[in-house]
Design a protein around this nucleic acid. Structure first.
Length: 220
DNA sequence: GACCAGGCACATC
DNA sequence: GATGTGCATGGT
């Protein structure tokens, strides 16, 4: 275990002691978690909940029900989550993939390996790395570390990762310094989001400032 | 009224 | 390959 690894576990212990268990991901079923993963892209979770409530109220929170909806109907139901046109398309792409390849059953994905799942999910237009990893970890409960803006920002500001690190490098750093454990990955990501929301706000770039602060020149 | 939120794909250089 | 931009609602 390297110093970086020790530091990472120390962060985890500190955050867990301070915030307690986060009980992620909020959702009544793996399918709901998967839908939420798409709807929460660059969006406050409160708005996602409204959209999910709409889907439930309309009795459309299932693969085949969403598959049967046309674009306009789906877009209106998920409207509160923002970006509703593009998210309706992305959700449709994901559901179509699930229906065509796995009979609309998220349970059918359980037998696939994490690398295979990742590869397949990433092949769906609209499913990027974070969304794919969120689905694998939180809906399918398989070990893959979810990296998001907060993860990058928090680890960057604490000098754990190079500011030039991309998604995969950040993910590799976390996974290589932590035991491969679904519960740990689950809780850690949720805790990072919590501390990020409260203490790691984005900072503006100030490239023209004569007192150039390196951190401020980065889009953290 | 400005800023931000649990990203992603695509156009352009 | 890096950088910029569109997508949109709702809370603070």
């Amino acid at each position: 275990m390297t110093a970086g690894g020790d530091q990472l576990m120390a962060f985890y212990e500190t955050l867990l002691a301070h915030y307690g268990r986060q009980n992620w991901w909020p959702g009544d079923s793996p399918f709901e978690v998967m839908v939420g993963a798409v709807l929460t892209q660059n969006t406050n979770w409160l708005n996602v909940e409204k959209a999910i409530t709409n889907l439930k109220a309309a009795d459309k929170l299932s693969a085949w029900a969403i598959d049967a909806l046309d674009h306009e109907e789906l877009a209106q139901l998920i409207r509160p989550a923002g970006y509703f046109n593009i998210k309706a398309r992305r959700l449709k792409n994901l559901i179509t993939w699930l229906c065509q390849n796995y009979d609309g059953s998220i349970e059918a994905l359980a037998d696939l390996s994490v690398p295979r799942l990742r590869e397949e999910l990433l092949s769906v237009n609209g499913i990027g790395r974070e969304t794919a990893d969120s689905i694998i970890l939180y809906a399918l409960e398989k070990p893959t570390f979810v990296v998001d803006t907060y993860t990058y920002r928090v680890l960057c500001r604490h000098g754990c990762i190079d500011p030039e690190s991309d998604y995969e490098q950040t993910k590799d750093f976390c996974e290589s310094h932590l035991l491969q454990d679904v519960a740990l990955y689950n809780e850690f990501h949720a805790l990072i989001v919590q501390v990020g929301k409260n203490h790691c706000k984005p900072r503006p770039k100030c490239t023209d400032c004569p007192l150039v602060c390196y951190e401020h020149t980065l889009d953290l």
